[in-house]
């Protein structure tokens, strides 16, 4: 039956090609949400995407917009240069946890603190995926990786970093939210958050930031379904979902899930 209207359509700015991601990896969902927002806000013609290093590196193959590849962790600095050179562009980065919260921590925080009118899409899957599953700044305590084979130990390696809370605390951010894509409900909420993160800089309010909790079944050594269940069971209790800052709201509400 092909006579009905499609109940689900892919955004035109998303390249209709197979992805390089592993089975069950939620980068595919995250980049689709970005593409949907680019289409809905009619941004594809003036968007400039800043790629990063990690599994996210090939974002430029999937989003049909002008793109530049940044060195590891430097996407927010590159985005700053692009935006200052071309203020009319809709500039966004797409970064993983190692890139954004470890090697790029300084660039990320200062970009947000300056209130650069850019959007940061942060895909947090608690591990360095592309390099083979090493410990990330967001690796959960106890989580085994190839560089913390006994499990992350808070005494030695510290606690996983909560980036959205940090970004929300900085004066230049206009919107900061943490979302997940582990359920239909969460995917719908995530889409709204991504959209707001694009709208904040476009409306000249400041930086827009979304942290998307995502799976890495391969490096978590789990099936995709087990990995997806881990999001709600282990990650969300430590990394609570919610809008941590939205300057368009009268008050900043901490903690609750993004409204449907």
């Amino acid at each position: 039956m092909k006579n009905g209207k499609e109940a689900f359509t892919l955004p035109g700015v998303l390249a209709d090609i197979p992805t390089h991601y592993c089975p069950g990896c939620q980068h595919g969902v995250a980049q689709r949400l970005v593409a949907e927002c680019l289409d809905e806000l009619a941004l594809s013609e003036k968007a400039i995407c800043i790629g990063s290093i990690g599994c996210s590196v090939f974002i430029y193959n999937y989003l049909l917009v002008d793109s530049v590849e940044a060195p590891h962790g430097r996407a927010p600095a590159v985005a700053t240069g692009v935006k200052r050179a071309r203020p009319e562009a809709a500039v966004f980065t797409y970064q993983g946890d190692g890139d954004l919260a470890s090697i790029g921590m300084a660039e990320t925080m200062h970009c947000a603190n300056r209130g650069e009118r850019v959007t940061i899409i942060f895909v947090n899957n608690t591990v360095y995926g592309m390099t083979g599953g090493q410990m990330a700044p967001t690796t959960m305590v106890g989580q085994r990786t190839t560089t913390c084979p006994g499990g992350r130990c808070a005494d030695n390696e510290g606690q996983p970093i909560k980036m959205t809370e940090i970004i929300a605390s900085l004066g230049g951010s206009a919107y900061a939210a943490r979302v997940a894509v582990d359920s239909v409900k969460h995917v719908r909420a995530a889409k709204k958050a991504v959209r707001k993160a694009f709208e904040a800089p476009l409306n000249n309010l400041g930086l827009g930031f979304v942290e998307i909790l995502a799976t890495c079944p391969t490096n978590w050594k789990m099936t995709p379904v087990q990995a997806n269940e881990r999001i709600a069971a282990e990650l969300i209790p430590y990394f609570p979902l919610g809008t941590f800052k939205d300057v368009t709201e009268l008050e900043t509400i901490e903690g609750p899930e993004v409204a449907e």
């Binding site: 092909k2 009905g4 499609e6 109940a7 998303l14 595919g28």
Partner: peptide, 9 residues
């Protein structure tokens, strides 16, 4: 995650 499913009303 792989845009493998089409659904029609």
């Amino acid at each position: 995650p792989d845009y493998a499913i089409s659904v029609w009303r």
